[in-house]
Simulated scan of single mutants.
Amino acid sequence: MDVTEDAVRDICTDAVFERGERYLAEGRIHEIHRVDTTVTAVVSGSRQYDVRVDLATGGFAPWCDCPYDGPGACKHVVAVLLRCVDDPPSDNGDRLDAALGGADADELRAFLRDELATDTDLRDRFLARVGEPMRQSVDELRTSIDRRFEETNPEYHVVFEPIDFTQWFDLANEHREQGRAASAATVYRALTESLDENMERVDGAYDHFSRAFSRALDGYVDCVAATERDADAVTDAVAFLTERAVSGTPFLAEHFEKAAVELQEKIDEQSCK
């Protein structure tokens, strides 16, 4: 996707666009890097914020760990995108490809194994890519996600700033791309449960958490529907959604109710084909 000022304006408010312009002019962007279409950067504000955008995705799939919860993208994202309009960072994709192409296979294998041994996120995605089904349960995944809420603001119960759930969404997507809908559904359900349980402690960045919840819930329904031959899984999913509508966070009840109805309709449509 071409990065133009008009395209950036489309994803933010006029006020945020102006603040993003000011941040760029003030030189607040640091450590900006690009690999293929993914750009990452650090933008200084009241503290240092991590930003990530995808130049090839409609809307740029922006992510920032600032507490902004207004409509559209934040000023840090806008500043980075405007930098890409005026002075795009060089693409390191070819450099990586060249390094990989010239690497010794045994050394590369040893390096990868060392990294996989210590980086659980990378290890999970690697195993998903090479064909391993999900072995973690919903409860085990939820423990990791819940921990992120605890670590975000350890001194208080309240969560003020966004949490990056990318590692779990990427893991679910990897399983989906490999045709393992049941494994992806496990990840989406863990995300849905954790967000539901922790939503009432959120006091800021509401749009961020609401979008993450909706994305996880939609993914769960889609993946369960893709496993329509597993009647027990479908029955369990509908029961889970119905129960959550009653016992979960009150303002999310309607979302669970609609999801239960949508899943049942998907299954009924498939059974009629």
Results as ranks from 00 to 15, higher is better:
residue 194 S to T: 05
residue 150 E to M: 05
residue 198 N to V: 00
residue 136 Q to P: 04
residue 131 G to D: 04
residue 2 D to S: 13
residue 26 E to Y: 09
residue 98 A to L: 06
residue 224 V to N: 12
residue 269 E to A: 13
residue 147 R to A: 12
residue 175 H to M: 02
residue 204 G to C: 06
residue 273 K to D: 15
residue 88 P to T: 01
residue 163 I to Y: 03
residue 143 T to I: 08
residue 148 R to C: 07
residue 132 E to N: 02
residue 138 V to N: 05
residue 128 A to G: 08
residue 204 G to M: 09
residue 206 Y to L: 10
residue 108 L to Y: 12
residue 21 E to G: 02
residue 104 D to R: 10
residue 5 E to P: 13
residue 117 A to T: 02
residue 159 V to T: 15
residue 34 R to F: 10
residue 193 E to S: 04
residue 255 H to Y: 11
residue 101 G to V: 02
residue 113 R to F: 01
residue 175 H to F: 06
residue 265 E to D: 14
residue 125 R to V: 13
residue 66 C to M: 03
residue 231 A to C: 06
residue 237 A to F: 09
residue 204 G to W: 03
residue 172 A to E: 10
residue 206 Y to H: 09
residue 211 R to A: 04
residue 148 R to H: 06
residue 95 R to L: 09
residue 121 D to P: 04
residue 184 A to V: 00
residue 151 E to H: 07
residue 81 L to S: 11
residue 146 D to W: 01
residue 1 M to Q: 11
residue 78 V to E: 05
residue 223 C to G: 08
residue 228 E to V: 07
residue 238 V to D: 00
residue 235 T to F: 06
residue 9 R to V: 05
residue 147 R to G: 12
residue 74 C to T: 05
residue 32 I to Y: 14
residue 41 A to T: 13
residue 241 L to D: 14
residue 34 R to K: 14
residue 75 K to N: 12
residue 97 D to E: 14
residue 194 S to M: 03
residue 51 V to A: 12
residue 177 E to P: 00
residue 253 A to E: 06
residue 137 S to I: 04
residue 111 F to D: 15
residue 247 S to I: 10
residue 214 S to M: 05
residue 251 F to P: 00
residue 49 Y to T: 11
residue 271 S to R: 15
residue 236 D to L: 12
residue 240 F to R: 03
residue 139 D to Y: 07
residue 163 I to R: 04
residue 118 T to E: 11
residue 79 A to Q: 08
residue 249 T to M: 00
residue 267 I to V: 15
residue 81 L to Q: 05
residue 265 E to N: 03
residue 235 T to L: 14
residue 263 L to G: 11
residue 80 V to M: 08
residue 215 R to E: 13
residue 217 L to E: 10
residue 152 T to G: 10
residue 182 A to G: 03
residue 185 A to I: 11
residue 52 R to K: 12
residue 115 E to I: 01
residue 21 E to Y: 00
residue 195 L to W: 09
residue 172 A to V: 05
residue 153 N to Y: 10
residue 233 A to E: 12
residue 118 T to D: 09
residue 161 E to H: 08
residue 161 E to C: 02
residue 7 A to L: 00
residue 60 F to M: 04
residue 152 T to W: 00
residue 117 A to N: 08
residue 51 V to H: 09
residue 37 T to Y: 12
residue 238 V to F: 06
residue 167 Q to K: 15
residue 85 V to K: 14
residue 185 A to H: 10
residue 31 E to Y: 10
residue 246 V to N: 07
residue 59 G to I: 00
residue 22 R to Y: 04
residue 162 P to L: 07
residue 139 D to N: 08
residue 123 R to Q: 11
residue 193 E to W: 09
residue 97 D to N: 11
residue 12 C to P: 05
residue 102 G to L: 06
residue 140 E to N: 11
residue 9 R to C: 02
residue 250 P to K: 06
residue 230 D to Q: 14
residue 146 D to G: 05
residue 72 G to L: 02
residue 11 I to M: 04
residue 270 Q to F: 13
residue 256 F to N: 10
residue 180 R to I: 00
residue 167 Q to S: 15
residue 180 R to S: 13
residue 256 F to A: 03
residue 51 V to R: 14
residue 250 P to G: 01
residue 110 A to S: 13
residue 27 G to R: 02
residue 178 Q to C: 08
residue 19 R to Y: 06
